[in-house]
Amino acid sequence: MQHWSERELLDRLALADNAAARELVGRYERIIVGAAVKHRIRRADLDDLIQSVWLALLAEHRTIRTPEALPGWIRTTAHRLCVRLTRQHRTELCADLAELPLADERPGPEQLAVRADRAHLVRTAFATLPQRCRRLLTLDLSHIGYAEIGGALALAEGSIGPTRRRCLDRLRARLAEHLEDLASP
């Protein structure tokens, strides 16, 4: 393999010199592959990407005024083609998804029964908590601030979080107990 300067490579490329084209590929293909890796281009599209960059260079090589800019030109062209490929695949994916029939999002009878069972289990476990925990968790779910919760329960704002955690731990324990009772014969 010859070692020509970028200027010589571009001049020989203009003359359709195969040896210069092989040297270009050998010297700069890793730039294109690096761009493909960076943009997560699918392996199936890599050869098309490489070919597109070289075709673009063949078409545009006369516009490169500074031969030393050739690696940057290849990098920029590869990047732009990767972005185009990524957008194209995203558009194709969206179009494919748009053609799919919409799933019925309403829950079926089995899902409704499972939800009802879970809700009943949580309500039952919740009812066994001390009143202070029930009030705290209810107020917490109402999305009011810590100041309002603290005022309603006569709690310092700094103790609301730890108290809530203890109440939730109790609720989890009660749920576990109820699940064990259901599982035992």
Score class of each variant (00 low, 15 high):
residue 2 Q to N: 02
residue 6 E to G: 05
residue 6 E to Q: 10
residue 9 L to H: 01
residue 15 L to A: 11
residue 24 L to T: 02
residue 27 R to M: 07
residue 27 R to W: 00
residue 33 V to A: 04
residue 38 K to C: 01
residue 40 R to G: 09
residue 40 R to Y: 01
residue 42 R to A: 15
residue 46 L to R: 13
residue 48 D to L: 10
residue 48 D to P: 07
residue 49 L to V: 03
residue 49 L to R: 10
residue 56 A to S: 15
residue 58 L to C: 14
residue 59 A to P: 06
residue 61 H to N: 13
residue 63 T to W: 02
residue 63 T to Y: 01
residue 64 I to R: 08
residue 66 T to F: 00
residue 69 A to H: 06
residue 70 L to S: 12
residue 72 G to F: 12
residue 76 T to A: 15
residue 82 C to K: 11
residue 84 R to M: 02
residue 84 R to F: 02
residue 84 R to W: 01
residue 90 R to Q: 13
residue 97 L to H: 02
residue 99 E to R: 15
residue 103 A to D: 04
residue 105 E to N: 14
residue 107 P to Q: 13
residue 112 L to W: 09
residue 117 D to S: 11
residue 117 D to G: 12
residue 118 R to C: 06
residue 118 R to V: 04
residue 118 R to A: 09
residue 118 R to D: 05
residue 119 A to F: 10
residue 120 H to T: 13
residue 121 L to E: 10
residue 124 T to E: 15
residue 125 A to L: 01
residue 129 L to Y: 07
residue 130 P to Y: 04
residue 130 P to H: 09
residue 130 P to C: 11
residue 133 C to F: 08
residue 136 L to T: 12
residue 145 G to T: 03
residue 145 G to I: 02
residue 152 A to T: 14
residue 156 A to W: 00
residue 159 S to L: 03
residue 164 R to C: 11
residue 164 R to V: 04
residue 166 R to M: 04
residue 166 R to D: 00
residue 170 R to D: 00
residue 171 L to S: 05
residue 172 R to P: 05
residue 174 R to D: 05
residue 175 L to Q: 09
residue 176 A to R: 15
residue 178 H to L: 15
residue 181 D to Q: 14
residue 185 P to D: 04
